[in-house]
């Protein structure tokens, strides 16, 4: 008999250095408690993190890579959002 499907979870870990939770991978578990325990065993065997989030994979809404041109176009044309766009006289020093 084929094995029945177990729900998929995405795992996010906040590392020691105070950065944001970062996606590290996914796993299967029947519920959230088991998902957290499995995430600890699979993704933090060497003290990789101080905090774990698990999220049902189905709860994630993702942008479509095929539409990335249109999706990110608003940022493409706005070079004035970057500090290097602005000229500051050299005498002023680092700013």
């Amino acid at each position: 008999m084929a094995t029945p499907n177990t729900p998929l979870w995405e795992v996010f870990i906040r590392s020691r250095n105070g950065l944001a939770h970062k996606h590290v991978g996914s796993l299967h578990a029947a519920d959230a408690t088991l998902a957290l325990q499995a995430a600890r065993d699979i993704y933090t065997r060497r003290g990789e993190g101080l905090s774990i989030w698990v999220v049902p994979s189905g709860a994630i809404t993702a942008s479509d890579p095929a539409e990335k041109g249109m999706m990110f176009e608003p940022a493409e044309s706005k070079i004035y959002r970057h500090p290097t766009f602005y000229d500051v006289p050299e005498e002023v020093g680092h700013m």
Partner: peptide
């Protein structure tokens, strides 16, 4: 174990 975990998740 897999069956028990699935049954428990379903009950909750």
């Amino acid at each position: 174990v897999r069956e028990a975990a699935a049954a428990y998740a379903e009950k909750r």
